[in-house]
Nucleic acid binder design. Structure first.
Lengths: 182, 182
DNA sequence: TCTTGCTATGCAACGAGTTGCATAGCAAGC
DNA sequence: GCTTGCTATGCAACTCGTTGCATAGCAAGA
């Protein structure tokens, strides 16, 4: 019961909306992926274990014109496991900020190397600018009117993503200024 | 040459200042740990591999009154490996934000569960408030006067940490407001 | 004297995450 | 007709990170 965190993200996602492994993988590429990444291989593997443990059940759904799928729902034991986990302390996150390592590493390269890094930071910045635009777009689309608590909670998490991206863009400008002034 | 990222963080740290595995582990608890976490077991294991690959060399240092240590420095091949890596694109980070999962999970628990989560968020907030205070303190201590490029780069990374913590505290207030209003 | 804590190093087992590959049917465009 | 791409599922091998444990000397305080 240590790591086992993908399980919880899957339980939340399936409680919000039952679905197949494939559908889950797509959600992890979109909304859930903002705060928890996972590949389809990982999801199928964990889903199988969760099914064996009785936290989720699958329903076979025959589709015409495309392969059958197995739609998963959360069982009562699964739900109470999640509720229990919600009460547990938040574990300190494992930080892994590659760009920060590169920036400190810039002290040990030459002018050409620093110029290349500046280019990389600019590219990275453009990516995150586009990401912020997508978030803001999604916010307008999905949260124009708020109807229930689930939506309110999804919205506050999205606001976190937006705040993060804005902070990041400001900091990247600071980084670019610093690198250019060396 | 895929993940292999702890290696780079170690190279940067050893270029900034040679040191033993133990000293590195302490640095990863402090400054480097702000953007890259690693345990001493991991560090020793990787250091051994890096030594075998010729990226670092060790010098035995006998100390009186405490165990001998092996102080590591970066070799020329190690340095050029780092410089090469600096030019490579920044990989997209694997996000893993447990608190966000819990917040969305709060939709599926009762009032008591939500109250417990609020308590957890408050505790988490207090932790990060203390962390911000430490960062600001370290900034005053270490960057009152700036003498070289290395310091300038370390400072901009620290400013990133400070900006992150400020953003996080604001967002946690938003989260607490949202949870209390449910 | 005994215990706690710090420096200093490391092994072994396990669990989680990544990468590459494989299958299979159907739809859409060239 | 052929290729590309999407839905849908999964295995196998590997690497990375975590956890628990072990050793050993010295310092400081109860």
């Amino acid at each position: 019961m240590r790591g086992m965190a993908l399980e919880h993200a899957i339980l939340v996602s399936l409680l919000e909306q039952p679905g197949s492994g494939y559908e889950l993988a797509r959600r992890f590429e979109r909304s859930i992926g903002r705060f928890w990444t996972a590949t389809h291989q990982q999801i199928y593997r964990v889903l199988k274990r969760m099914e064996a443990d009785g936290w989720v059940t699958a329903e076979e759904i025959g589709q015409d014109g495309r392969p059958d799928k197995r739609s998963f729902s959360v069982t009562e034991p699964g739900r109470s496991l999640l509720v229990e986990w919600l009460r547990a302390p938040v574990q300190p996150e494992a930080v892994r900020h590659e760009l920060a390592v590169k920036i400190r590493g810039a002290a040990f390269t030459d002018a050409a190397g620093r110029a290349a890094l500046i280019g990389e930071v600019e590219r990275y910045r453009a990516e995150h600018e586009a990401l912020l635009a997508r978030y803001l777009n999604g916010e307008k689309r999905d949260f124009a009117e708020i109807n229930d608590d689930g939506q309110r909670l999804q919205h506050v998490v999205l606001r976190g993503g937006i705040a993060y991206e804005r902070m990041l863009l400001d900091w990247l400008d600071d980084v670019l200024g610093t690198l250019r002034a060396l």
